[in-house]
Structure formats: C-alpha cells, structure tokens
C-alpha cells in the first residue's frame, strides 16, 4: 500500500516536471500542445475511491496551473476528468474483476482496450481544456483544429510512454 502511494507520488512529481519543463514549450504548427500530465489520472487504480480520484486530480490540475499561469483552467478540467474517468473505462471494459491488476495498463486491459481508453481520455481532456481556455476568445474553426491536433499529439506521446514502461517491466520479470 505504502509502496504504491510512494510510486504514485513520484509519478506525480515526474509528470508535473515533464509537463512544465518540456511539454509546455512544445507547440507544433502553432496548434498542437501535448497535455501529457493526464497520464497520472489515467494510471490511478480503478479501486481507488472516487473522492480520492477527484482530490488528486484537482491538486494535479492546480499544480500545473500555478506553473503555467493558467488560473484554474487545468484544475477545473482535471476535476471533471476525474469524475468521468471510470465511466469512460466502463465503456470499453464493463467488468473490473477481469482485470489482472487494479492499475489500467496495456497488460491489464489488453492493448486495444487500453488504447481506446487513452484516446478517449485525451480527447475529453483536450476538449474540456481548450473550451475553458478559449472561453472568451471564441473561434470555432481554430478551437476545433487545436482540440484535434492536441488530442492526437497527446495520444501518441502517452502511448509511447506506456509502451516504454511496459517493455521495461517485462525485462524485469
């Protein structure tokens, strides 16, 4: 239990640092911004109580907000994301008991289900975030391109991180 908590704490710090130091500076073609820190919310165990999921999601969003000067935007999007996470997973994987471990990963869910899950989460998060961010400067065409390109970029990077991690785990076994 304690080991998992420490593992997740380290993941939290790593994700925040990676996002603010590296990924926040990436902006492909003026549109695509990778929002990679949601990997932390994706990886939270499904058995974790929803109140805890909301709390850590909110804190994660708030930390990113403080670093990138986006007052409350990520915090709001992350809280909404935390609420929707389980329903999204149930969409593709109705029975939790079939999972080999409580943590969503390529192995515990199977590659195709996991990819669908990550893609949906990326799409929902990018939609939420860019809608909140462009609240007052509304420009539908630009917003749509931003959401689509950022979702794709986020999805690709998240898949890359996950495949790197699962390969390393296989070597260890």
């Amino acid at each position: 239990m304690l080991k998992t908590v420490i593992q997740f704490f380290i993941l939290y710090v790593l994700m925040v640092l990676a996002q603010v130091i590296v990924f926040n500076r990436i902006c492909l073609f003026g549109y695509a911004v990778p929002l990679v820190f949601i990997y932390f919310i994706i990886k939270l165990p499904v058995t974790l109580h929803i109140n805890w999921v909301l709390t850590v999601s909110f804190l994660l969003g708030l930390t990113i907000d403080v670093f990138s000067d986006t007052q409350g935007m990520n915090a709001l999007a992350c809280t909404l994301m935390g609420l929707m996470r389980k329903s999204v997973l149930h969409l593709y994987f109705p029975r939790e008991d079939d999972m080999t471990s409580s943590q969503p990963s390529m192995r515990s869910l199977g590659v195709s289900v996991y990819l669908k899950y990550v893609f949906s989460i990326s799409l929902i998060y990018c939609t939420l975030f860019f809608f909140i961010e462009n609240f007052s400067l509304f420009n539908p065409g630009r917003l749509f391109i931003k959401i689509a390109s950022s979702t794709l970029l986020t999805f690709i990077i998240l898949t890359a991180i996950e495949s790197l991690r699962s390969r390393r785990n296989e070597k260890r076994l």
């Binding site: 909110f58 403080v66 915090a75 709001l76 809280t79």
Partner: peptide, 26 residues
C-alpha cells in the same frame, strides 16, 4: 466534486491580473 469545481471557478473568473497572489503564479 462541487467544492473543487467552485474553487477552480473562483480562480478562473478572477479577472484582475494584478491581484494574484505571488504563490499562485509562476
């Protein structure tokens, strides 16, 4: 959920950029 959403919205709709506390910014 409502509690966190309200806190986020307080930050989000605080439109005076000169009143932000230094610890809540970069």
């Amino acid at each position: 959920f409502t509690f966190y959403v309200i806190i986020s919205c307080i930050f989000l709709f605080d439109k005076n950029p000169y009143q932000h506390h230094v610890y809540m910014t970069s």
